[in-house]
Amino acid sequence: MSFLTIHNLSARLKGRPDQILRRVSLQVAAGEVRGLVGESGAGKSMIGKAILGTLPNSVEISGGQIILDGTDLLALPPAQRRRLIGAKCALIPQDPLTALNPSRRIGPQITNRLVDILGWSRSDAEKRALNLLAEVQIPDPARVMRCYPHELSGGMRQRILIASAFAAEPKLIIADEPTTALDVTVQKQILKLIAAMQARHGTALLFVTHDLGVVSKVCQSLSVLYAGMVLEDSTIPDFFAAPKHPYSRALLQATPKYTDPDGSLTPVPDAVIAATRAEVEASDRSAHV
């Protein structure tokens, strides 16, 4: 039984037929690291937002189920759902510069979930935060706890956000392009850190990215998304050996290989995009019947 099961999830802009997610199904087993890959606008971030309940007001879920640890999230009343998410899931956001509240010190931003939502005592929560900051290799954690975000570098802030995500020992972490906003030099360290933390804590990880190179390093399995539809679902070795879908194949060819970063790249051919688009539309039609 997988920890997270998404079944036939569809979402659209409110009051409009435009589909944002098309009958998405995917599973994440306990402790599994799954990549969620697609171009920008493919709806990969929307899946993360749908799970966490942070979809924009303009988007509504039009069908399907999100089952977290045996509970259908969409059937829960909002307050109960929020608490369940707060206790079992966490988010590593994309941009560390905007993901910390500029007017609050670091300490409370890590401990607030533990104290307010999970009912820990303040001193326990602070001890836990200090340990975690040490674990993500932040020098002088006690001092950092008293800092304001603007006093710290982008890389430091992302480490803090990672520590904060692991604070409540969640069963599932959604990492939404966690390295995109960082300098290239810092990216590698952060990626290693996330992988190490995941391995140590055994947390399931849904890794949202557009970068197949990153997926090949961190993930065990992946789902390829196009226009809000899952085109392919496979394990990492299988996918990199022989991608099944023509679009996946083209996407792989358009990605610099980490073994050969200077090798020639081909952009995804127009013909492949057209064929994929036709497939999406055909699937829409059959779903309506």
Partner: peptide, 17 residues
């Protein structure tokens, strides 16, 4: 709309908080 507000929502906080 800022990320830290979204992050707080995922922690389990309600709209008013």
């Amino acid at each position: 709309h800022l990320d830290y507000v979204t992050l707080a929502r995922t922690k389990g906080y309600g709209e008013t908080h």
